[in-house]
Write a protein that binds this DNA or RNA. Structure first.
Lengths: 189, 189
DNA sequence: ACCTGAACACCGTTCAAGT
DNA sequence: ACCTGAACACCGTTCAAGT
């Protein structure tokens, strides 16, 4: 069973290698270093480069594996938002939570704003779940008349990534809340 | 006179090398290749790598040199917008023109959304001119009551780069106009 | 079967040697 | 003075050889 199928349990040592690589990559990212040299990560994880490539054939695959946690959290938030009694509250909560997750995890921003199709089936699944939940939120908000009628789930994904980009294009100031507010105001009908 | 001072005329051959490098870099970018390998550009321009580095000590310097045209055009647009009889018109024209220039020139996006200070004095100058003109536009629009009072020139820079990012995070669709509209609506008081 | 790491190609950057 | 390109360090990626 290849790790690439990402279905079924891995052998114990394979899972260990995978975890060590992810930990090494996260350590690098934690130090602000956003690019992930395969050679360096393999060495830090104590495995040969070939083994590293067997687990993550491309840097994008590694990036997606790192982002799975945050992406799953975002899906959970979106599902919760879709079930909120007040559609407007669910909608604003989605944007607020999304922006927070994007700020806390740079790999999520990389995965969410990528134009390429995902490497991992898990990412594809989570993306689909996210799209479904966001669409539900939008339909309910639209029925309530609290958002522009022409906004799609894909628009929301792109716009929230754009706001994150704007927030990141400055020093650690109070921009996040203000920009989120501007986006919310702009999305009202 | 070193080319790095970017003041005063260059010797004829130096100017030729510079132009050849910029042309080679633009050719690469034109093919969608956004990173600029110094070795490859030096070879394409027919000069040694050392000479390439004397002209552009870092890739950021090369990027800024490529962006100067677009940045100057944006400054001109902003100055024109600041002189518009109708502050609201000047303001919307600024955002519209800015987004168009960002879409047409990927190097402008790289330079405008960079958090690092510029390499070239020219970039610093143009940035300052741009900031001044945008601030004038904002003050006039604020006096007219057509924008939120707390929006700064830096916010505008970051937000327009964010919208560009959102536009770029999709296929060639009609997103640019819609996202610009959302931003404009969000910026109203 | 799986893992290793030498090996090849490539890019950034410097600097001794040329003119 | 200025230019050249060999040279060194580094990273991506593959694959023959080991276990």
């Amino acid at each position: 069973m290849s790790p690439l199928t990402d279905s079924g349990p891995l052998r114990a040592d394979s899972a260990r290698v995978r975890a060590q690589m992810l930990a090494a990559a996260r350590a690098r990212i934690g130090e602000g270093d956003l690019d992930l040299p395969m050679n360096a990560i393999a060495k830090a994880a104590g495995v040969g480069v070939g083994t590293a490539y067997r687990h993550f054939p491309t840097r994008q695959a590694l990036l997606e594996a790192l982002a799975v946690q945050s992406l799953a959290a975002l899906v959970a938030d979106a599902v919760a938002g879709a079930a909120d009694p007040d559609p407007a509250v669910g909608f604003t909560a989605l944007l607020r939570n999304g922006l927070r997750l994007l700020r806390d995890d740079p790999t999520l921003a990389a995965v969410l704003s990528s134009t390429e199709p995902p490497c991992l089936a898990t990412t594809t699944d989570l993306n689909a779940q996210l799209g479904g939940a966001v669409q539900t939120i939008l339909e309910r908000a639209r029925a309530e008349g609290v958002i522009r009628p022409d906004v799609t789930a894909d628009d929301i994904r792109r716009l929230i990534c754009g706001v994150q980009h704007a927030v990141a294009a400055g020093q650690g100031d109070d921009a996040a809340d203000r920009y989120l507010d501007i986006l919310l105001a702009g999305l009202r009908p």
